[in-house]
């Protein structure tokens, strides 16, 4: 902690130097830095644009085509596969690992058929995604003791509140009683948004005013849950950048508060990740995992063109599995994660 001091002093010092420099060179700079005004820019990069037009065929179609053309499996084919993985946001490192494993298997098993390649590479990724789960998707924990507490975290705008609303509906539909805790006391109207969802889903909501201390909201909410004997508690937290230390500390405090009321809670701590997110999601999972021990990922907005490949990296590098996916706006569009469907989406 103490080291901050040093750097603040350094920063102040540099700022001081800058000030002097600014005053000395002000006139000079003003002449040099006249910013040209620009009108609307025309599309100059037509070529690139054309080249970027999405291929009609899925990757497997392309592989088949390539194989027909060349009649053999070679490095170029492997590179194309790696490209597909990177384009799906699987990430350079994890893609590299997958392709290395594939290369090894091709050599060892003397694979020559496209169908075989397809089966092998999906098998490799499947093993990666389901490692430690005996080849089955882990899914959300079942209710052992009342209430089952699920904490939702994530950066801004990934769909935490919406996911909670949908999940609440799902639980209510199966006859469970659900309490939502509105611990996003920061974003304007976040509490109202959750309240609307609570009403739609037929769930109860525990809330305070905007600006209230989120830990205190959580504390009161959990007390209420214990008193009213509800089955499921879903906690909504404010979206926060994982780089903001204060906010991550705040989250850690929420986590500790939960444990104070219910020692073995939260039973699930879910990081909500937007499928369009790129490599940054890895950092998110790492930092959120430090503040609250993550038990899973919810991958939202899979109904767009993004593939959400980053979850492969999150499982492979940080060992946090995907538990739920969001594929649309309606409540029925929150589903349990299925690795086969996911792989189909990546390669098609």
């Amino acid at each position: 902690m103490q080291d901050y001091l040093l750097y603040i002093v350094i920063a102040a010092l540099l700022m001081a130097g800058l000030l002097i420099w600014l005053l000395l060179s002000r006139k000079k700079r003003k002449r040099a830095d006249t910013i040209p005004k620009s009108g609307k820019t025309n599309t100059q990069s037509v070529n690139l644009k054309e080249r970027l037009v999405k291929t009609k065929n899925g990757l497997l179609g392309q592989i088949a085509e390539l194989l027909q053309l060349r009649g053999k499996i070679d490095e170029e084919l492997l590179e194309d596969l790696e490209e597909a993985l990177i384009k799906a946001d699987v990430g350079v490192e994890t893609s590299g690992d997958i392709i290395d494993k594939l290369r090894l298997r091709i050599r060892e098993e003397k694979i020559t058929e496209t169908v075989e390649i397809q089966r092998t590479i999906t098998g490799i990724i499947k093993d990666m995604m389901l490692a430690d789960y005996a080849g089955k998707e882990p899914g959300l924990k079942e209710l052992n003791s009342k209430p089952l507490v699920i904490l939702f975290t994530g950066v801004n705008g990934v769909g935490k509140t919406t996911t909670i609303g949908k999940l609440a509906k799902r639980y209510v539909d199966t006859g469970k009683s659900v309490l939502l805790i509105a611990a996003d006391t920061f974003r304007a109207a976040a509490i109202d948004q959750l309240a609307i969802w609570a009403e739609r889903a037929g769930a109860d909501i525990s809330r305070q005013n905007q600006g209230a201390d989120p830990s205190s909201v959580v504390f009161d909410g959990l007390k209420k849950a214990l008193n009213s004997n509800v089955d499921i508690v879903l906690i909504d937290t404010a979206g926060r950048q994982h780089t903001k230390i204060n906010l991550m500390n705040e989250l850690n405090k929420i986590d500790r508060t939960i444990k104070k009321v219910i020692p073995d809670a939260p039973h699930e701590s879910l990081l909500v990740v937007d499928a369009t997110t790129g490599q940054n999601a890895l950092m998110q999972a790492e930092m959120f995992g430090k503040a609250t021990n993550l038990s899973g990922v919810v991958l939202t907005k899979l109904d767009g063109t993004a593939k959400g490949g980053i979850v492969v990296g999150i499982k492979h590098q940080l060992d946090v599995p995907v538990k739920l996916i969001g594929v649309g706006e309606s409540t029925a569009d929150l589903r349990d994660f299925s690795v086969d469907e996911f792989l189909k989406a990546i390669f098609d």
Partner: peptide, 14 residues
């Protein structure tokens, strides 16, 4: 657009 968007950013923008 979100700065954290991955490879799909160009598809969406286009």
């Amino acid at each position: 657009a979100d700065a954290m968007t991955g490879q799909d950013a160009v598809n969406v923008a286009r």
